[in-house]
């Protein structure tokens, strides 16, 4: 399961959204990754999520594998496309 999202938060993926992505990822058993410019980042790691440095308008692919992969991807996608 993979899907592309555009970052809609005007300030990009920063401290608070990074934490929200980790929260969303750890709620699911599937492991999920964010792929940006060919590099992939583990969504259950806060260190990874604060390092991703995604800005408003960046396109990020969310990839997950496992039983609840679709739900995991959508939960993370919701954070990426949230405007706040």
């Amino acid at each position: 399961m993979k899907k592309k999202y555009t970052v809609m938060n005007p300030s990009g993926i920063h401290a608070r959204p990074a934490l929200k992505i980790v929260e969303a990822a750890v709620r699911h058993s599937s492991d999920s990754y964010l792929v940006k410019d060919g590099a992939s980042f583990f969504a259950k790691s806060l260190v990874n999520m604060i390092s991703i440095g995604a800005k408003f308008g960046d396109v990020i692919e969310v990839v997950a594998e496992g039983e609840d992969s679709q739900a995991a991807v959508e939960a993370i996608g919701a954070v990426l496309t949230a405007e706040h």
């Binding site: 401290a15 583990f42 790691s45 806060l46 260190v47 990874n48």
Partner: peptide, 13 residues
């Protein structure tokens, strides 16, 4: 402190 708690649970760290 919450950020630090997440870092403490971080597999990558």
């Amino acid at each position: 402190i919450e950020v630090q708690l997440y870092l403490l649970a971080d597999g990558e760290l």
